[in-house]
C-alpha cells in the first residue's frame, strides 16, 4: 500500500486573527501553528492503514519553511518520508495542481487529506486533485476500510451518511470519526529528525489572489432576559430581531 497524506499548517483554532500591512497580509506574530485538524484525522487513519497493511506513507505539505515543525510532527506520528512544495498555499486550484503534479506517475493507492483546511475553508482541494488525476474523489469521509483493491467508506450526507464501495486509487477528504488523533511518542519524535524531507519548487500558477483582509464588525451587547420571563424572548425574536 502506497499512501500519501496531504497536510496543511494552520493557525491553532483558538488563535486571535489579525492582519498587517494595511490589511493585505495575515499577521503571523504570536500565532501557534498546528496540523490542520481535519488533516490530522486523515493522517491518523493513514498511519493505522500503513501499520496494518505495510507499505509506505508519505506526507505532503504545500507551504513555506515555517510549516516544517508540523511536517516533522507528522513524521513523528508515523509517516515514513515527507515532501514540502515551497509555496504559500492561498489558492485551492494551485495547491491541488501542485499535489497532482507530484503524485503523477508515482503510483499512490490512496491520497488522504482533511475535508477542508481551517484557514480558507473551501473544502475543494481533494476534488480538484481527483479530477486532475482522473481518479474518483469522495468527501467528507468518516469511515474507511480497505480490502485488497477495494475501499469501503462512509461519506457524510445532509442528515445522515452513505456507505459506498470504490476501487483504488482514490482521493479522500476526511473528517472525524475516521480515526482518533495521534500524539507522537518520544521514539517517533527522535526518529522524525532523520526521516527524509524533500523540498520541491512549485510548478503551477495560482488562479486567485487575496487583495485585502477584513475582520467582522464587533458584536453588540447581549440582551439578557430573566428566566422567569423566558417566554418574552419569543416576542422579541419576532418583533425586534425579526427572525420568526
Amino acid at each position: 500500500m502506497k499512501i500519501l497524506v496531504c497536510i496543511s499548517s494552520v493557525p491553532d483554532t483558538t488563535s486571535k486573527i489579525s492582519f498587517e500591512e494595511n490589511d493585505t497580509k495575515f499577521s503571523k506574530a504570536g500565532i501557534q501553528y498546528i496540523i490542520g485538524p481535519y488533516d490530522d484525522y486523515a493522517l491518523a487513519r493513514g498511519v493505522e492503514l500503513r501499520e496494518s497493511l505495510g507499505g509506505t506513507l508519505t506526507v505532503l505539505n504545500v507551504g513555506l519553511a515555517d510549516a516544517e515543525p508540523q511536517i516533522r510532527k507528522a513524521l513523528a506520528i508515523g509517516a515514513d518520508d515527507a515532501v514540502r512544495i515551497d509555496a504559500e498555499p492561498t489558492d485551492s486550484f494551485f495547491v491541488a495542481s501542485e499535489i497532482a503534479n507530484y503524485v503523477k506517475d508515482k503510483g499512490f493507492d490512496l491520497i488522504l487529506m482533511g475535508r477542508e483546511t481551517t484557514d480558507y475553508n473551501s473544502g475543494v482541494v481533494h476534488g480538484i486533485v481527483g479530477e486532475l488525476l482522473g481518479i474518483p474523489s469522495f468527501s467528507p469521509v468518516m469511515e474507511l476500510k480497505l480490502e485488497g483493491n477495494t475501499a469501503t467508506l462512509a461519506r457524510e450526507i445532509e442528515g445522515g451518511k452513505e456507505k459506498l464501495e470504490a476501487s483504488l486509487p482514490l482521493v479522500l477528504g476526511c473528517q472525524e470519526p475516521i480515526a482518533e488523533w495521534k500524539i507522537p511518542n518520544m521514539r517517533g519524535i527522535m526518529s522524525a529528525r532523520t526521516k527524509p524531507l524533500a523540498v520541491i519548487a512549485p510548478s503551477s500558477e495560482a488562479l486567485t489572489s487575496i487583495e485585502k483582509y477584513e475582520l467582522p464588525a464587533p458584536k453588540g451587547a447581549c440582551k439578557m432576559i430573566s428566566a422567569e420571563d423566558a417566554g418574552s424572548l419569543i416576542k422579541l425574536l419576532q418583533t425586534e430581531a425579526k427572525v420568526l
Binding site: D91, A96, S122, I128, S137, T208
Partner: peptide, 18 residues
C-alpha cells in the same frame, strides 16, 4: 463542494468558496 471542485479542475477555473 465536491461537484464544483471537480468541474473547476476540468475547466482550469479558479474557485472561491464561502
Amino acid at each position: 463542494d465536491a461537484v464544483m471542485a471537480r468541474a473547476a479542475g476540468a475547466l482550469k477555473a479558479g474557485l472561491v468558496g464561502n
